[in-house]
Amino acid sequence: MLTAKTILLAYHGTEGAKRAEALAYEIISREGGRIVHLLIVPEDVWVGMQGDDWLNNASTRDTYGSYVEGVLEKDAAEQVAVVEAHCKQHGLAYTPILRLGDPADCVIAAAREEKVDLVVIGPPRSKKESGLRSRMELDTLGRGLPVPYVVACGE
């Protein structure tokens, strides 16, 4: 069976991501394994949230900006807490990374920087599931990654 010492896990709490997490724990080597937890804020979503609120004065806009940053930080912190706790249970080292950008590009860059052996991601979300519309371009991922990647498909 496939095994890896350092795994990059793209995880943001969705059903697919939870499957990816479970799969990562199955694959990872028991001795000195490390999970690199990547959280991505898709750039187009982030830009879209800074819409054309031209009627407001800049102080309203600043308040909003700090608020949105705070919300995203809180979101990230919650996800980090979950995965970090699981890693502890499994006796694994843990590194969180938060990035802004195109999802596939972020995965590629993080995989190179952290020198991971394997990347594990969840499957595309089913249409019924709600959430932000932003997709991981598997084509880009396939061409750019220096290491194999695994998609945690399944029911």
């Binding site: 819409g51 407001n56 932000l132």
Partner: peptide, 18 residues
């Protein structure tokens, strides 16, 4: 403009704002 002004007040989540 109103979305931006009201989000902090009603503690909207990032997805909801989007």
């Amino acid at each position: 403009s109103a979305t931006v002004a009201a989000s902090p007040v009603v503690q909207a989540k990032s997805g909801e704002i989007a």
